[in-house]
């Protein structure tokens, strides 16, 4: 970013923060973020140094994700509901300031990378206690119920959320050049067994290891709200436990961090409601299919989307891992031996 752009950003931040003497000490693009771009931002105002994150669109955002103003609204609602999230500070919808809309939130300490966290000693030592707290965090998200005027941009499923998801994934598959019988089979299986949802709540829809910032054994922030929406809360519970988000720590069924029962215990204690254990395997199959479809979409960004990238191409080739998970899980459920 050139000096002029930086000065414009500093002026806007000073006005938003009500601090005339605010200046930008550092502004650096952070790694990661295929859909969004995050910038580490350190400012000084009134002799006080503050670490923030500026979040804006990456050049190739996935069309299904929310806009930054919508994500900011979600973050505010979650923050007010007591969910541990980075505090949302300012929203700028004027593209002339930074080239595109952005928002600023407090920067929280810790790490989020799943493959690192599941091998971290402090995380392992805290395992069950940590996932119990994560269960409480998820329950606080699910306490947010429709209707909400400040979340009126979120679509409401016009039937069982499971059927809504299935229709969406079929639409995504139809947009791809190659058919996928294994995914069609799993979707058909899911369609024939779609549960009537007991309730509809706000769902994070990507609540998993990798999107949770942890510092030592402390949860410092639930991140990445770009897919949040109204759905069946059991979908979120299952997504956190799905095999594909254990990063190789298969035996620790709650996110590769702790036991499933500890996670459930925290959720039930906070929400006052029982986890619908019978439907979790169903939603885990849905989760495997979802990740397979996302992987294929990422691959298509390389194959047909004009973004040459070996990383994207190899992500697309990961789909069979989730297809096998789904096939094996379906076989186990049909045989009555699912977890």
């Amino acid at each position: 970013m050139n000096d002029e752009g930086r000065a414009a950003l500093a002026r806007w931040l000073a006005a938003a923060a009500g601090a005339d003497d605010l200046w930008i000490a550092s502004l650096d693009k952070l790694s990661g973020g295929a859909i969004q771009e995050n910038w580490g931002l350190t400012v000084e105002a009134g002799g006080k140094r503050q670490d923030w994150v500026l979040r804006t669109d990456a050049p190739s955002g996935v069309s299904t994700s929310h806009t930054r103003p919508q994500e900011f609204a979600l973050l505010r609602v979650a923050h007010e509901a007591g969910v541990t999230v980075p505090e949302p500070l300012f929203l700028c919808e004027d593209a002339s300031v930074f080239g595109k809309p952005f928002y600023v939130m407090a920067r929280v300490a810790g790490r989020a990378e799943g493959h690192v966290l599941v091998r971290d000693e402090a995380v392992a030592a805290a395992g069950d206690a940590l996932v119990e707290r994560l269960g409480r965090e998820l329950a606080r998200i699910h306490a947010i119920r429709p209707p909400r005027g400040d979340l009126d941009f979120l679509a409401m499923p016009d039937g069982p959320p499971a059927l809504w998801r299935i229709a969406t994934y079929r639409r995504y598959l139809d947009a791809m050049p190659d058919p996928n019988p294994a995914l069609e089979y799993a979707l058909r299986w899911l369609e024939r067994r779609a549960p009537e949802s007991r309730e509809i709540t706000l769902c994070h829809s990507d609540f998993r290891t990798g999107n949770i910032m942890i510092d030592g054994a402390r949860i410092t922030g639930i991140l990445d709200w770009e897919f949040a929406g109204w759905s069946d809360p059991m979908e979120d519970v299952a997504w956190f436990c799905a095999r594909c988000w254990r990063f190789g720590a298969w035996e620790r069924e709650a996110g590769g961090i702790g036991s499933r029962e500890a996670f459930y215990r925290g959720y039930e204690a906070e929400s006052g409601r029982e986890i619908e254990r019978a439907v979790i395997p169903y939603w885990e199959v849905m989760g495997a299919i979802r990740w397979a479809v996302i992987a294929l979409q990422q691959g298509e960004r390389h194959l047909t989307g004009g973004e040459e990238s070996l990383e994207l191409a190899l992500t697309g080739l990961r789909a069979p891992e989730m297809e096998l998970d789904a096939l094996l899980d379906i076989a186990a459920i049909d045989a009555g031996v699912a977890a």
Binding site: A182, Y185, L317, R318, L324, L327
Partner: peptide, 21 residues
């Protein structure tokens, strides 16, 4: 059908991630 699909997926995984298979 499941037999056919499992064999297909196995073949694809043998290509892309034999360790996971």
């Amino acid at each position: 059908l499941r037999e056919l699909l499992t064999a297909q997926v196995r073949a694809r995984l043998a290509r892309t991630n034999p360790k996971y298979l």
